[in-house]
């Protein structure tokens, strides 16, 4: 028998917060992306935990979709980054503030 749900949920909460804080603090676009992945993983962990707690496979199905969407997001996001880096050298998201209206 595995540990109770709250342990996993707490871990997921910590992971999510770390990802969120990282997203707010780091300026490197790629690292910011990684922080988003951390947050997604926290959510995945929550979903699997609830899937076990509620004895419902739906949670795991949702994780599957999250994985696929994350992959799509990274592909497009990195495509955008590559396109941007052709014009500007540098890896900070702050450089992109020139895009404001």
């Amino acid at each position: 028998m595995s540990l109770g749900g709250p342990y996993y949920l707490t871990l997921a909460a910590v992971l999510f917060t770390i990802g969120g804080v990282g997203l707010l603090l780091r300026r490197n676009v790629l690292v910011m992306f990684m922080c988003v992945e951390l947050m997604l993983n926290a959510v995945n962990l929550t979903l699997v935990t609830f899937s076990r707690m509620l004895n419902d496979i739906g949670g795991q199905s949702l994780v599957f979709f999250v994985l696929v969407v994350a992959a799509a997001e990274v592909v497009v996001g990195l495509g955008i980054i590559v396109a941007i880096f052709r014009r500007r050298k540098g890896a900070t998201a702050d450089d992109l503030h020139i895009l404001k209206g």
Binding site: N41, N44, V48, S51, F64, L67
Partner: peptide, 14 residues
């Protein structure tokens, strides 16, 4: 948590 498939997919995809 018995989500074997997701574990492997996690490794493959991520």
């Amino acid at each position: 948590q018995s989500a074997d498939f997701l574990a492997v997919v996690q490794v493959i995809v991520y």
